[in-house]
């Protein structure tokens, strides 16, 4: 179980199941823009003609999301939180082959 990222508990529910939130510390966020190299873009473009899942972009977004969550957790750590609750995600495609991933949530202390 990888529920604890760098010692910070991350959930997308308003409360932490089975725990008591004692203090809220405000909004924390993390974002990232990543792109794949040209070769993978070309492969994805060719795959697009035939249709189906574009595995290259799935992988790209998966990596980016991990990075965005990692940055959000680093932000939470820097203000001394022990958990991030109510996490939300937003995605936007900036140009072909690059995506911006944004993760945000509320930093809290729990016991």
């Amino acid at each position: 179980m990888e529920q604890v990222v760098n010692g910070i508990l991350v959930v997308n529910t308003e409360t932490i199941p089975g725990k008591m939130i004692t203090e809220t510390l405000g909004v924390v966020s993390g974002s990232t823009v990543r792109a794949k190299h040209l070769g993978k873009d070309i492969f994805a473009g060719l795959k697009n003609i035939v249709g189906g899942e574009l595995a290259q972009y799935t992988e790209l977004l998966q990596e980016s999301r991990q990075e965005a969550v990692g940055r959000m957790v680093a932000d939470a750590m820097s203000i001394g939180a022990t958990a991030v609750v109510n996490v939300r995600f937003a995605t936007s495609a900036i140009t072909a082959g690059a995506a911006e991933l944004f993760a945000y949530g509320t930093a809290v202390k729990y016991e």
Partner: peptide, 24 residues
């Protein structure tokens, strides 16, 4: 709201994704 059960010991974020496109 998580199920009304008092025996929750652990929780954490999980996610899954995929990019899908129609053919030309």
């Amino acid at each position: 709201r998580w199920m009304v059960r008092s025996d929750v010991t652990n929780s954490g974020l999980i996610y899954a994704s995929g990019v899908f496109g129609p053919s030309y």
